[in-house]
Every structure is written in structure tokens, then in C-alpha cells.
């Protein structure tokens, strides 16, 4: 899309705070993110609190009758969504580390996450 067509580009952030599979929040936000990619906005994804579990490697929810959508996070690169941020404190509190993540993401502190949120035009949290 050229400059004439593209219009205003806003900084969007989708903030994920819930673990996957127990509720539908994580999947719904992911679908919103995929749709948002069509609008050529500056999309950021944040994972904090229990949301860090959405990026956990090795998810196998067949046993609880839920579709495994975690591989879809690996498709985001193809949608030009590459700004993924994971909060360091949230990982540590839950006994997780960067090695547990199934996609590359920038690990940032809670303080930096807060500052980054403050720079956004639109923040959607679930």
C-alpha cells in the first residue's frame, strides 16, 4: 500500500494476560491480531502475567478437547507482525524462562513494558 492509500498508521498493542485453553480469551485476541494485520497498522503484542503461557512450547491440549492454536503464533511473521514482547518478571514468577517460548520475542522488564504501553495509541487487554 502506498502513502496515499495507507492513511493514518496507529500504534496498536494487544496485551495478553490469560493462560491459553481454560478460557477463550487467548484465541479471540489472536484472531483479532490476525485481522488487524490486514489494516497495515503498527501492531505490538505483549505477553504478561499468565499470558506468558500462551507462548509456552509443547502445548498439547488434545486431552482436554481443545484445538492447539499455539502453532499459529509462528505464522505471525508471515503477517508482518514481529513486535512481540514478553515480561521478564511474569516469566520468573511462574518458573518459566526465555527457553520455554515457542517464538522469538523480546524479553523486557515490567517497568519497560509499562513505558511501552504508554507509547501506544490503542491498547486492547484481555
Amino acid at each position: 500500500m502506498d502513502e496515499m492509500e495507507s492513511g493514518i498508521v496507529k500504534k496498536f498493542m494487544f496485551v495478553n494476560r490469560k493462560p491459553p485453553h481454560g478460557t477463550v480469551y487467548a484465541l479471540e485476541v489472536l484472531e483479532m491480531v490476525l485481522i488487524s494485520a490486514a489494516f497495515d497498522q503498527d501492531v505490538h503484542l505483549a505477553f504478561l502475567d499468565d499470558g506468558v503461557f500462551q507462548l509456552k512450547k509443547g502445548q498439547a491440549p488434545a486431552g482436554i478437547g481443545v484445538k492447539n492454536f499455539s502453532p499459529t503464533f509462528r505464522a505471525l511473521e508471515g503477517y508482518d507482525i514481529e513486535k512481540l514482547f514478553v515480561e521478564a518478571e511474569s516469566l520468573a514468577e511462574r518458573g518459566l524462562s526465555e527457553d520455554d517460548l515457542l517464538v522469538p520475542a523480546e524479553i523486557i522488564s515490567r517497568a519497560d513494558m509499562g513505558r511501552l504501553m504508554g507509547e501506544m495509541d490503542v491498547v486492547v487487554t484481555a
Partner: peptide, 11 residues
């Protein structure tokens, strides 16, 4: 089978 979604046309 790799990503568990049908891609958008652009993708």
C-alpha cells in the same frame, strides 16, 4: 498443518 490457520490471501 504447520500453523493451524488458513492464511489471508496476502500472506
Amino acid at each position: 498443518s504447520e500453523y493451524q490457520i488458513a492464511p489471508a490471501v496476502r500472506v
